[in-house]
């Protein structure tokens, strides 16, 4: 086995192969960042929606809760397959990576909206009352007082979630998205040793995940003790 790997190595680490893997790594990053970015935006919307109290919005609040509870209880692989078969009849031109990104967005929205909700709830009620007594509108109170104070609670777990999702996007290889994992699959199917083909993929994920994970933890340490009462 070792001899085979050594013999294959020079051909394997050709610039064409490395470029191929690198492009795939870019797609992995794209799915993660765009999906989680959209998920954060929509999740923020859902979290705010779920804080409202107007009776008129009750059905919307209920739908938001349904979304959150549903997408946290279905395997990502199943969601990928459902989005693939659900979205493409509506938007036939959409690329596979687009479909995978929608799936990431759906799941990220559910998880991130819970993280954001916890962050918003960490701001004491007294702060909102102080704002209300000073004649702030609900929007001003949220935008000027609540949101700025919840970032330090929201950002560390949100960053950690995103780093975690880098790895989960490997399941998109099942759809045929030529992301990092699929690039390894293609190399192996072309005859490369699985140790090399999947080894380089593992390395790729580690290079993405480890530094970002460290960054997320640094963020946590920096934000945690700041300006506590």
């Amino acid at each position: 086995m070792i001899e085979r790997i050594v013999a294959e190595a020079p051909a394997f680490f050709s610039s064409a192969n490395l470029g191929f893997v690198l492009a795939a790594l870019g797609r992995t990053l794209f799915m993660t960042f765009v999906g989680c970015g959209l998920g954060f935006g929509i999740g923020l919307g859902l979290a705010v929606l779920r804080r409202t109290q107007a009776p008129m919005l009750a059905p919307a609040r209920w739908l938001a809760m349904l979304w959150v509870e549903t997408f946290r209880r279905i395997p990502f692989l199943v969601i990928l397959i459902m989005v693939l078969f659900g979205v493409q009849p509506l938007v036939p031109e959409i690329s596979l990576i687009g479909i995978a990104t929608i799936a990431v967005t759906l799941v990220a929205t559910a998880f991130l909206s819970e993280i954001i909700r916890a962050g918003l709830e960490s701001v004491p009620r007294a702060q909102v009352e102080g704002a209300a007594a000073m004649n702030f509108s609900a929007w001003q109170s949220f935008w000027l007082v609540v949101l700025p104070q919840s970032w330090r609670v929201i950002l560390p777990p949100a960053a950690a979630f995103m780093v975690m999702f880098i790895k989960d996007t490997s399941l998109a290889s099942h759809l045929g998205v030529v992301e990092l994992t699929f690039s390894g699959k293609i190399l192996v199917n072309r005859g490369s040793s699985p140790v090399l083909g999947y080894g380089i993929v593992l390395l790729g994920y580690f290079i993405l995940s480890w530094p970002l994970g460290r960054l997320a933890r640094m963020l946590e340490v920096r934000l945690a003790p700041s300006r506590n009462q």
Partner: peptide, 11 residues
């Protein structure tokens, strides 16, 4: 109003 717990905006 001035509150018992001040309610100053921490941010």
């Amino acid at each position: 109003i001035v509150f018992q717990q001040f309610n100053l905006f921490q941010n």
